[in-house]
Design a protein around this nucleic acid. Sequence first.
DNA 1: GCCGTTACTGCAAAATAGCGCAGGCCGCGC
DNA 2: GCGCGGCCTGCGCTATTTTGCAGTAACGGC
Lengths: 259, 259
Amino acid sequence: MLQEDRFVRIQSLLASIDRLSTDRLIQDMQVSRETVRQDLLALESMGLVRRVHGGVARVTQDEPPFVQRQALRVAEKRAIAKAAVKRLQPGQMVFIDAGTTTAILAEELSLISRLVVVTNSITVALKLAGTQAPAGTANRMRVVLLGGDTNPEIPCTYGEVTLNEIRRYRADVTLLSPVGISAQDGVTFGNEHEASLASAMAEQSSSMLVLADYSKIGLRSRYAVACPPAQQTLITNAHPANTEALAALGAQGVAVLPV
Amino acid sequence: MLQEDRFVRIQSLLASIDRLSTDRLIQDMQVSRETVRQDLLALESMGLVRRVHGGVARVTQDEPPFVQRQALRVAEKRAIAKAAVKRLQPGQMVFIDAGTTTAILAEELSLISRLVVVTNSITVALKLAGTQAPAGTANRMRVVLLGGDTNPEIPCTYGEVTLNEIRRYRADVTLLSPVGISAQDGVTFGNEHEASLASAMAEQSSSMLVLADYSKIGLRSRYAVACPPAQQTLITNAHPANTEALAALGAQGVAVLPV
DNA sequence: GCCGTTACTGCAAAATAGCGCAGGCCGCGC
DNA sequence: GCGCGGCCTGCGCTATTTTGCAGTAACGGC
């Protein structure tokens, strides 16, 4: 790998992920710590990045528009996303839906190699496409964006077309970030499109990881996802108020994995 | 292999791969390290490439490849886009490919009502989704993003999946912004994905509008689009140097519409 | 707030990879 | 056969990367 390549890579990673750990870069580019350090030193002296303890940060103050909503509880969401990534194996095929937590998930996902990601989220597709290894690399990820209608509010695809496309894949895992999860209604979304997409994904995969921070536990929204609780693993962060709701979910067969 | 051949080869490789290692070139052309070195030295002195440690990089002024490329000739492209929009009727279904001119086209397109837009360009889909009338409005546009693989460089979908999806639609018009259009090879693109997508779109629609500013007239790139000239309308801006090339295209049955 | 642990940094020597020169070989045209 | 341009080989040199070590900053328990 040329030094030039590394420069480009670091910058392109930074374009979609605001901060990178040194370790992450070492993993990603398979070079020594010191080499990364030299690169960062060089890039910093060019004013292209800003070095911070443990890694490097983007040198910019402006904020893209869509990012704002996910500014809530980012730390929790990232922790949940990291835990979810740990449950994945190289070579698996995964469905990912369009949510704020899954957008963060996308940033954590590039450490798993040879993954096939099938998603209806444009955000997820762009982030993964931006961070994935260069063409020809052995552990390159494949990112499939599902076709379908698009929508003014959320960068995703949906509708009959999307549902049909989902049926063409059979994945190992479905990763969802729903509006709520409760013992009564299971996994629920705020609109029927998202719910039916999630149902279709669940149907076409053998297990489901539900990414939900504590604020979503026990919440019931309008449209439910059809999926047997026994296939579901809930990844969430602990909060005293949720003990009861989590126990109820556990009693139904949902595996609960606290972060 | 002639030195001249190697020069051409190195440059054409660089056109699609930003950086090349010396080893890669040695492998590719089956010559010694020193020969490659001499070639690179020569090319560098001509200002055609930039040498870096371990290889060679494309010489370029600046560029995050996609965003800035569309900064070129924006005024012409916008004029061409406006002219293209005039040829569309309310209620039609149109295919749009992923190019810089079509990205501008997307901004002009919201004037036509009840359009169904089918595209593989994420940029186009997002722009249209962003500008379209609110849900429930009578003349609301429908935007369908084609599914498929996604790619680190250009925000679009491509591949077998995308080709198959195109075949599910039968559109009135295909709008393309190719790399070049010439009497010899017709409409051409720089990579085979784009070309086969364009061919599939052309096959599934009754007419084609080719959006090409004057710099593209007479240009021949590597991968040609299969489409009878009689179905093509070329929308371009006039430039004295092109008179001949335009006449040749006209003689083949391509309708030429100057802006 | 103090202290021990862990993790990150920075330097410098050693190892490795790439560079450039000089000289020689080969095929071609005369 | 001879000269010439183009290409390859060997060797010393330089740049880059890794490795090992010591110092320093962050973190967590008490």
